[in-house]
Design a protein around this nucleic acid. Structure first.
Lengths: 349, 349
DNA sequence: TTGAAAGCGCTAACAC
DNA sequence: GTGTTAGCGCTTTCAA
């Protein structure tokens, strides 16, 4: 057992060949005479030699690593993205470098810049406005972003939040809900899209929604906002939350306040986090295909690395997941105008 | 905007100094004449120069990166570990390299070996038996393991599972439960400890537990095992699961089977995953301090990197989190012998 | 305080 | 097939 690991020169010496031969052998770029191959194999085995990827990278200019920056690894949406991206990376012989920027706008840029130096390409989830990503392009590394960018031709992936919100709202309208509220997270790039999707559907039925702001994309935001929504003058019969975490927090607090769910209010979110299924009532949500999103982003980046760049927006389709946290309302409790579409129409699942 | 990023030589030329001077300036190792410093600053700014960490690492032998291998990033226990480790790493100027081994015994070793080449040290969570980690030591990198290792003097961190299980069991016994079952995950290094902790407490009260095996540490395992536990001849009044995920899956399926929770059965797990709080009933669990575990592991590794190695086991204290999924049983439904300790005694919280 | 030069471990021409 | 050699971008003596 050696204290410091052996180099290509040690192997060359032990096998009685040149370093170039060892290098070629390690990279499997050509055939060798049986004698040399045997000696090589023996020497490598005996010395426990493993080529130093750093030295290799210096010359080839590629690290075989890909950097992924997420806003908060604890959010299951991002956890799933990491999972998907990681799998594809491994399949293609890449290592994943993860950076959690902790929703911290200040730390974000230096962290990503440092990350960029150690990888062949980047996948970035950030709250940076579309027109402030020039510095990312100056990194001179292939990059894939979450969300579409209207200012630069950057490869992007995302799930259609407008459609997702439209679908969910339509489902709720079909169920007979009339008094809508939306508990959002304004800092997210998706928040506006979701509001528009919801409002567009509501408008078709002559309805509107009260808008609340949650300030963080976490259960705490839902808990905090709960009392003002539930105990205010105009209690909604349906609440759409920016994401499932907010919805989960809201439901917990609503129950603590003595409300019955979903009888007193229907609650829904976005993301289809793995635990929405295990609450009671189980959470109605829209599956944004987080894991697929991670896979897709990684595929796009690996394609870009291979030269086949596709600097467009690749959207994924959302899918409504109707569960028990949203309840069909009876006409008796309905104070709004009648539906123009039949109540049993067009729902997913 | 240059196509390829500039090197130390470009800066040296632009500032009219030698590369050695630029290097020293970048590393802030000495003072400079105002004239040189000004030119340096200007040249670096203008060229957007950033030193190449790979080239630096080749010489210094340190990468300022730390590798973390987890079994499944989707498990909130590991997510929290990553979170804690990442924060400490960033505080100390390190980058985190994450590898998700996907509970795959075959992939694990090559992945970790590849990871080891790119980092200064490793933090590893694995199912490798204590006596099969020699190859990890042969990596010649400082390493921190989760769980104590009885065969080698390796720095380890973990939470006392025996105590955690003992505490939880005691709470359940105090609540009046008498017919215990344990739904485990045999592949985990912690499983046996938890069983021993539970059995040791049960034995003190002349009780025993039926043992079931879940095969995976996921909600699916809980769902799958549910019917045989609930519909078998000897239905328990308390179920302890290997972790919260299994407990969550079990509770969902039990409800689907028509059982009332926690009236028909009390359920508890380990880990205190963030979502156990949001289920209904909220899940009783033992907080294993996952995030602190990640922080502690990273601190230990950074200490080792700094030479102050501490090759012992640093255990964290578990904390019982009593919620509503475990219910105080009345004597009427109790067919087991009476308690030797009062029912209202020694519970945490 | 500054610079010249010798590599770190490896790959990639190019010879043989 | 195999060897020679010139670096990749940087740090680090050692002199000046």
């Amino acid at each position: 057992m050696k204290r410091t690991s052996s180099t290509i020169r040690d192997v060359a010496a032990a096998a009685g060949v040149s370093v170039a031969t060892v290098s070629k052998y390690m990279n499997g770029v050509q055939r060798f005479s049986p004698a040399v191959e045997a000696r090589l194999k023996a020497a490598i085995e005996q010395l426990g030699y493993r080529s130093n990827p750093l030295a290799r990278s210096m010359i080839t200019g590629e690290t075989r690593a890909i950097g992924l920056a997420v806003l908060d690894i604890r959010n299951p949406h991002f956890t799933n993205i990491v999972k998907g991206a990681n799998r594809v990376a491994i399949e293609h012989g890449y290592t994943l470098l993860l950076v959690d920027t902790e929703e911290n706008q200040t730390r974000e840029r230096p962290l990503i810049e440092a990350l960029a130096q150690r990888v062949d390409g980047l996948i970035v989830s950030s709250r940076i406005p579309d027109d402030s990503v020039q510095w990312m392009l100056d990194l001179h590394k292939p990059i894939v972003l979450f969300g579409s960018n209207r200012h630069f031709p950057i490869p992007c992936v995302g799930t259609d939040s407008y459609l997702a919100a439209y679908m969910l709202t339509r489902h709720l309208v079909n169920q007979g809900h009339r008094r809508f509220a939306y508990l959002g997270f304004g800092q997210s790039r998706w928040n506006d899209e979701r509001i528009r999707g919801m409002q567009s559907c509501l408008a078709e039925h002559g309805l509107t929604a009260a808008l609340y702001e949650g300030h963080t994309p976490s259960p705490q935001a839902g808990e905090r906002a709960c009392s003002s929504i539930m105990l205010g003058p105009e209690r909604p019969d349906a609440l759409i939350c920016y994401n499932d975490l907010i919805a989960l927090g809201f439901m917990k607090e609503a129950r603590a306040l003595g409300f019955a769910l979903p009888e007193d209010i229907s609650v829904a979110g976005f993301d289809n986090v793995p635990y929405g299924e295990y609450t009671s009532p189980a959470l109605t949500t829209v599956d944004l295909q987080s894991e697929k999103l991670g896979e897709l982003a990684m595929h796009k980046l690996i394609d870009a690395l291979a030269g086949k760049s596709d600097a467009g927006y690749s959207p994924l389709e959302p899918r409504l997941v109707a569960r028990d946290s949203t309840l069909r309302r009876t006409a008796s409790s309905d104070t709004a105008p009648a539906l123009t579409t039949p109540t049993r129409n067009g729902d997913s699942r």
